[in-house]
Design a protein around this nucleic acid. Structure first.
Length: 420
DNA sequence: TCTGGGGTCCTAGGACCC
DNA sequence: TCTGGGGTCCTAGGACCC
């Protein structure tokens, strides 16, 4: 028999900051997003004061002063590094690990009648991660990933830091007390839908017949019900699948009103995105540029995006050229812009990487084979159409971003002129 | 005045083909 | 008033996650 454990770092970013600044221990601490805009991590003390997740800093300034809350800018290099150490530590305890996010990992725990109880395994992992990395964790254990997730939430509140949901009776008790939004994959919108059907807690959802779940929430719903019943329906992904998109975007510190400044930002993002793409030897199929004004303001809104097809052989310099052309095309003067970004789409392994994958003597091959074959089949001839759009339809660009700006298309001639 | 960034999956429906 | 049928591919948009 097998069980799944979810090892979840407590207040991860704050815990990382505390490792290197022990003075923060025992005090309320928050870590902020880019531009020091929003709270993205809170210490227990900060949570107890009532600081919400994701709140803008300027809305809690009174509390910061009153409670002497320690405010940190984020340092993602540090968190990434600590994350690998945590994942490496967990790998000492299981051969089947999924590094699910920067602060979480699933691990398969083997159960047999001679081995120690799962609960003790949880304690052991927790203790080791703390000793080896300094990061406190919570461990949830259950027959499925969804149940392990629920367990980890309870573990955070328990004194042991471990909660085992493999026992069916315990599970039933817990599920009856678990609200819908505390289930992995259910947010307020979905919860509201279920509420209308008379479903108010995890136990009722578990006992909903699969067909109703499917008709209300599509396949996601039926998977959820199965998971809650203890039937694994969400596989453990030991190999991180290849990325399908790479995005680089930022909100500006203030308002940006000139094409020159916008162009500078776009050039930066393309360089960063291209670097992220080339390191794992990927190539992209298309590039998208988007721009937005301040979405929190009521008036003077504009946002837009456009995508063009690119080829694997395009250099970063060429990509910058395309991206700035796209920008010129979607940019409208007279607006105060707050955000811009670049997305590389349709990522595939490069040809050399594909060859390497073919020769690689591991199960890696199976997972990547489909992508690899696609990559080999990729055309190298340059086309200026958006993907999926045949040339004859003369619909190379599509402007869509949102309701604020109408969709329209331009013809190939215009694109060529812009690109040249 | 100040409001993050980077992803994935699913479905409906349009466009196209024979 | 009638106006095929079956299939694929693609995208936008919704929903969710950390």
């Amino acid at each position: 028999m097998q069980a799944v454990a979810l090892i979840d770092c407590n207040n991860f970013y704050v815990s990382c900051e505390r490792l290197f600044r022990p003075k923060l221990n025992g005090k309320p601490v928050v870590v902020l997003s880019n531009n020091d805009g929003c709270v993205v991590s809170r210490s227990q003390e900060a949570k107890d004061i009532g600081i919400g997740m994701g709140v803008p800093l300027f809305t809690i300034e009174d509390q910061v002063k009153k409670h002497d809350i320690q405010v940190c800018s984020s340092n993602y290099t540090l968190y990434g590094d600590m994350s690998s150490r945590v994942h490496d530590s967990i790998a000492e305890f299981s051969n089947e690990i999924e590094n699910y996010s920067i602060d979480e990992a699933f691990a398969i725990l083997e159960v047999n009648r001679y081995s120690k109880p799962l609960f003790d395994s949880g304690l052991e992992i927790r203790k080791a991660v703390k000793a080896w990395t300094g990061i406190p964790t919570s461990v949830g254990i259950g027959p499925t990933k969804t149940l392990a997730k629920i367990g980890s939430k309870l573990a955070k509140k328990s004194s042991d830091g471990v909660f085992d949901l493999t026992n069916e009776r315990v599970r039933e008790e817990v599920l009856a007390k678990t609200s819908l939004v505390d289930i992995w994959g259910i947010n307020v919108r979905t919860a509201a839908k279920l509420f209308k059907l008379g479903i108010q807690n995890a136990l009722q959802l578990r006992d909903l017949d699969v067909r109703s779940a499917r008709s209300a929430l599509t396949v996601v719903g039926s998977r959820l019900v199965e998971e809650l019943r203890g039937n694994p329906s969400i596989a453990l992904e030991m190999m991180a699948p290849l990325k399908k998109t790479i995005c680089c975007s930022r909100s500006f510190g203030g308002e940006v009103k000139t094409l020159t400044e916008m162009t500078e930002s776009i050039i930066n993002y393309v360089s960063t995105a291209a670097e992220k793409m080339r390191r794992p030897q990927l190539v992209a199929n298309a590039i998208q540029v988007f721009i937005e004004t301040n979405r929190f303001k009521e008036k003077g809104q504009y946002s837009n995006s456009a995508t063009i097809k690119i080829t694997p052989t395009d250099s970063t310099r060429e990509l910058i050229g395309y991206a700035t052309s796209i920008l010129r095309h979607i940019y409208r003067p007279g607006y105060a812009y707050r955000k811009s970004g670049v997305i590389l789409l349709g990522l595939q392994p490069s040809e050399s990487e594909t060859r390497r994958l073919f020769h690689e003597d591991t199960y890696l091959k199976d997972r990547k084979l489909m992508n690899a074959i696609d990559a080999l089949n990729m055309k190298h001839g340059r086309q200026t159409v958006r993907f999926g759009m045949p040339l004859k339809r003369e619909k190379a660009w599509t402007m869509n971003r949102n309701h604020l700006s109408p969709s329209y298309t331009t013809n190939i001639g215009e694109i060529l002129r812009i690109r040249s």
